[in-house]
C-alpha cells in the first residue's frame, strides 16, 4: 500500500498529483500487480481532499489499463510500467549521458542544457499532435 501526499508548490492539480504518484510507484516497483490502492474514503480522510478528485485519478489510471476497480472491495493494480521500460532504460540513459558530455564540451551550462532539452521536447510533442 502506498500513501499519497499533496505538494502545494508542484503546479499540478491534486488529481494529477495522485495519478503521477501511482505511476511513479509503479515505475519504481513500489506497487505491483495485485496490490490495492488506498481506499477513496481513506485518502479523503488523510488529505482532506475532495472524493471526486480521488475517483477521477483512479478512473484515469483505470482508463490507462493500470488499475481495475472491484466494486465494494477496492481498486487494484492490474498493469505495470516497469517491466518493458526497465530493459530499454539502460541504453537510453547511456545515450543521454554521451549527449550530455557533448553538450558540456560545446560549452553549455546546466540551465542551457535544460532549456534546450525542454524546447526540443515540446517541439517534438507538438509535431506529434499536428
Amino acid at each position: 500500500m502506498i500513501e499519497f501526499h499533496l505538494d502545494g508548490k508542484s503546479g499540478l492539480s491534486p488529481y494529477q498529483q495522485l495519478v503521477r504518484q501511482v505511476r511513479h510507484a509503479l515505475r519504481l516497483g513500489l506497487l505491483s500487480e495485485g496490490d490495492q490502492l488506498p481506499k477513496v474514503k481513506d485518502v479523503v480522510a488523510d488529505l482532506a481532499i475532495n472524493p471526486n478528485t480521488v475517483l477521477k485519478a483512479y478512473r484515469e489510471l483505470e482508463h490507462d489499463g493500470l488499475v481495475a476497480a472491484r466494486p465494494g472491495v477496492g481498486t487494484f493494480v492490474t498493469g505495470t510500467l516497469s517491466g518493458t521500460s526497465l530493459a530499454a532504460l539502460a541504453p537510453l540513459r547511456q545515450d543521454l549521458r554521451r549527449w550530455l558530455a557533448k553538450a558540456r564540451r560545446a560549452g553549455l551550462d546546466e540551465e542551457s542544457i535544460e532549456a534546450l532539452f525542454l524546447t526540443t521536447f515540446r517541439a517534438a510533442a507538438k509535431e506529434d499532435i499536428a
Binding site: G8, S13, V44, A48, I49, N50, P51, N52
Partner: peptide, 25 residues
C-alpha cells in the same frame, strides 16, 4: 466535510479566501 461528501453524497457550496484550501477540496 470531505468524509461526509464521500459517504453521504453531500453537496457543498462554500465561500473562502483561502485558495490553497479550495484547491484541495
Amino acid at each position: 466535510l470531505m468524509e461526509a461528501v464521500a459517504e453521504h453524497g453531500l453537496s457543498v457550496v462554500m465561500s473562502s479566501h483561502l485558495i490553497a484550501d479550495l484547491e484541495r477540496v
